[in-house]
Design a protein around this nucleic acid. Sequence first.
DNA 1: TTCCAGTGAATGAACGTTCACTCCCAGTCT
DNA 2: AGACTGGGAGTGAACGTTCATTCACTGGAA
Lengths: 205, 205
Amino acid sequence: MTPLPQPIPAADVRSHEILASIRQTFAEKGFDGASMQDLARAAGMSVGNFYRYFPSKAAIVQAMCGYDLAEIQGEFAEIQIADRPMASLRDRILTHFSEESMKDGQLWAEITAAAIRKPEIGAAARQMEDSIVSLLATIFAHTTRRSLEDARVRYAGQCQMLVMLVKAMATRTAHCGAASPALAAQVVAVIDAILTDIAHDSAEG
Amino acid sequence: MTPLPQPIPAADVRSHEILASIRQTFAEKGFDGASMQDLARAAGMSVGNFYRYFPSKAAIVQAMCGYDLAEIQGEFAEIQIADRPMASLRDRILTHFSEESMKDGQLWAEITAAAIRKPEIGAAARQMEDSIVSLLATIFAHTTRRSLEDARVRYAGQCQMLVMLVKAMATRTAHCGAASPALAAQVVAVIDAILTDIAHDSAEG
DNA sequence: TTCCAGTGAATGAACGTTCACTCCCAGTCT
DNA sequence: AGACTGGGAGTGAACGTTCATTCACTGGAA
């Protein structure tokens, strides 16, 4: 059922490269702070050519959301085929709390702020979060042997909570540095409570 | 080289009025998105006069942090003299989750993003969060009959967690609308767990 | 008179976006 | 072979706009 590596157009590959190279600039200067000239320079090309790939700034953020979502979907695919998906999920979540994900936090703070301001970006960001919630629900459905629809409504709060916590921690790390062990302990405790709670909520017993 | 102007009461009152009137504009357009012209118009004055009160945009945000902090300190003062401070604290926290605090969430998303970008704003934002953590610790110290220093280190993680949760919820509300009951239930459960945990952690056993 | 709150046109820099342009190369025709 | 051609990749000056900031100025109160 898995299709062959999809025939990604050349322009799409190029777009991905560009997104990767402007990521940092976008995070550092913000949506309004980063000029198209800045971004084009970061991408190593002229402004005119840059516009051939992204017709506007909002389009860049939308594409960036798609890019990140694809990456996350890949992560979830790996989680799902792991020995113990729930343990694997926990590991992945905790990975996001390290100091090296500061750049992601910075970018997400920018995207979050821009999402409230510009409806198109808001839609993209919300869709991304919904997708992640869905991916979490899928894993929970498997481990509890429930239908996806059942898991989706039963664990909606938990899924949203997890997403919110990861985002909040990333953002916090970006502007305060690595979280104190005391805070990390609190967050991990909440996450573990949620995960073990769900793990013990199997449909058959 | 004094970063803060000397306390002139009249000018200070005027600054407060101005801050209150530009709050919404700042939230809606963002740090870079709101022009000085926009802000001056929102404050009902000319650009030239506006510069007499705030020499730069960063100064506005710094002042806004001070303004909000003063307000919050007032809230905590009321909490502290309440019958049951912990219950009062809980009420105040839950109040922040209503739909009407969307504007605050929007503003905080902007300030958070700007805080990562501009060191001066970052310092102001961090100082504000530290102050709130301190205020929380003070209340916890009273209810557990511990010294402030003791409570500060013992409940550091819990205090930071509470601040992070409130900020995360406000931000989320600003771009997704009011939280689903399922998410709200999760968050309230965590908050209640923290508060009752501390309430039962009295120094005398 | 001096002081202070307030004005808004002016300035030059920087912005997002457009566009006429060059370069390169695979095909195609002679 | 050589000449011609269409089009994608890439360029950067130019456009009109908006920006942050300044400053010569006004009106009223002390």
